[in-house]
């Protein structure tokens, strides 16, 4: 009888431990729209930013199928933009990061002759990922927004 009680207690303890381990590994989902708004509010842009339709943004950034995005852009007068993506997986996020870096380099080459004043912003572009999420910021001053993005992505 005593032995049975010990076994039962150990089993319960084991179950509790496993349950706790499961909870620690789970990250809070990011509100894509909310984070994008926060980033745009924190960064300094040269011109007002405008929300893009999600279908336009998904095509613009060649985001993986099934991605969720909230993006902002200027009017064409500057190279500024900001976007937050939920790509669905860490693998998709890694692929998108690589794609965004190539796109950013292409824009640097374009703006070098078209509007050289915008090149420093592109060279300072923030492209971050955490879990399935990706953040892109091209701004006059992205430092505050970058901090917010890093904090949000840290737990992913």
């Amino acid at each position: 009888m005593k032995k049975a009680k010990r076994i039962a207690a150990l089993a319960l303890a084991l179950c509790a431990a496993l349950a706790l381990a499961g909870c620690v590994g789970k990250a809070e989902p990011i509100d894509v729209d909310g984070l994008a708004q926060e980033i745009v509010g924190a960064a300094t842009f040269g011109e007002p930013m405008n929300a893009l339709d999600s279908s336009v943004a998904l095509g613009l950034y060649s985001a993986p199928e099934g991605s969720e995005v909230c993006a902002f852009a200027g009017t064409g007068a500057t190279a500024e933009e900001a976007a937050v993506f939920n790509t669905g997986s860490a693998e998709n996020a890694a692929a998108l990061v690589e794609s965004l870096r190539q796109r950013n380099q292409t824009r640097i080459d374009q703006y070098a002759s078209y509007n050289p004043a915008e090149v420093p912003k592109l060279e300072s572009a923030v492209i971050l990922s955490g879990g399935p999420y990706v953040v892109l910021i091209v701004a006059q001053d992205a430092s505050a927004a970058e901090s917010i993005a890093k904090d949000a992505l840290a737990g992913q």
Partner: peptide
Amino acid sequence: DSRTEGLKLYSGLPTTFWSKVG
């Protein structure tokens, strides 16, 4: 050019754009 790029971003038209700044 870039003006058409703006149209691409904000027109909402279901169409194809062959445009680029510059």
